[in-house]
């Protein structure tokens, strides 16, 4: 362990200064945005029917997306962490596609997929293009990739040895995972769902392209910021942005502190 004397050496001071500068930049940005408006105008903007609908739709779709992402991320994360099979590096690379592709391109790909015969067949049963389901699908496409990464990381750090012991005690592999590994992975599951939720809250490009920006229908918070900016209503755009900053901070805090307890 380093002594207090080591901690104030020029080396640590310079590292601290770099981190401090970056933090200052972030805080300055947020403070400037927060000071741009007054609480009265903030409340006035948030009281608008369209914006309240957008808040409700964002909270609902992000929560559904987070849960769906977790349903995908737990089995896929486990598969990547524990199984060895031919072509695994290719699968890992493929699962990162939504992370590395520009979000707008992902939206375009979704739109084109649902113009194909396969897509049209699905649309026949559940319409996605320019609907709320499309909002969730666009969020899920990207949010799930982040959740998979988080769950894979979680399972990588959990020893497989307790699972092996559980199997010698009479469990099947599935029972061992369910009774031993998943309870131990709950903090990671909480983090994965939170990451997917937060990522979905900020999703804009794919939703705009695939689900549209129809007020009171497929408008989510980032769409609101864009719509309000495009008509020159900066006050409302700032109000919604501040709300999103607050949500993001709450998720960060929850992952940081609640996550330790989960």
């Amino acid at each position: 362990m380093s002594s207090p004397l080591q901690r104030v050496s020029p080396f640590w001071v310079s590292l601290g200064a770099v981190a401090g500068l970056y933090l200052f930049f972030l805080l300055a940005m947020l403070t400037a945005t927060a000071c741009y408006t007054t609480p009265g105008k903030l409340i006035e903007a948030l009281a608008k029917r369209e914006i309240q609908h957008s808040i409700g739709l964002s909270l609902l779709t992000c929560t559904v997306t987070a849960l769906l992402s977790l349903l995908l991320a737990v089995p896929v994360g486990y598969l990547l962490a524990r199984a060895r099979f031919p072509g695994k590096p290719w699968l890992e690379a493929a699962l990162d596609i939504p992370i590395v592709l520009p979000p707008m391109v992902m939206g375009l790909c979704l739109l084109i997929l649902f113009q194909t015969r396969f897509g049209q067949f699905i649309e026949h049963f559940m319409p996605f293009t320019y609907t709320v389901f499309g909002v969730v699908l666009a969020q899920f496409t990207i949010g799930a990739a982040f959740a998979v990464r988080t769950m894979r990381h979680t399972f990588d750090h959990l020893s497989s040895r307790p699972e092996d012991v559980a199997m010698t005690l009479g469990c099947t592999r599935a029972q061992a995972v369910w009774r031993v590994t998943l309870p131990a992975a709950r903090r990671g599951m909480f983090a994965a769902a939170s990451v997917a939720w937060a990522r979905s809250l900020g999703e804009f490009g794919p939703i705009l392209v695939f689900a549209g920006a129809t007020r009171m229908k497929t408008e989510v918070l980032p769409t609101t910021v864009w719509l309000e900016l495009s008509v020159g209503n900066l006050e409302a755009a700032v109000a919604v942005s501040l709300l999103m900053v607050l949500c993001a901070m709450l998720v960060l805090a929850a992952v940081k502190w609640l996550g330790e307890e989960v």
């Binding site: 959990l158 020893s159 040895r161 307790p162 092996d164 199997m167 010698t168």
Partner: peptide
Amino acid sequence: LPPGERGIGYVPQDGAMFPTM
């Protein structure tokens, strides 16, 4: 036979405790 049907008791090096139990 699957591990659970072999009638064995297994004690690994680190104990491999079930973390949440």
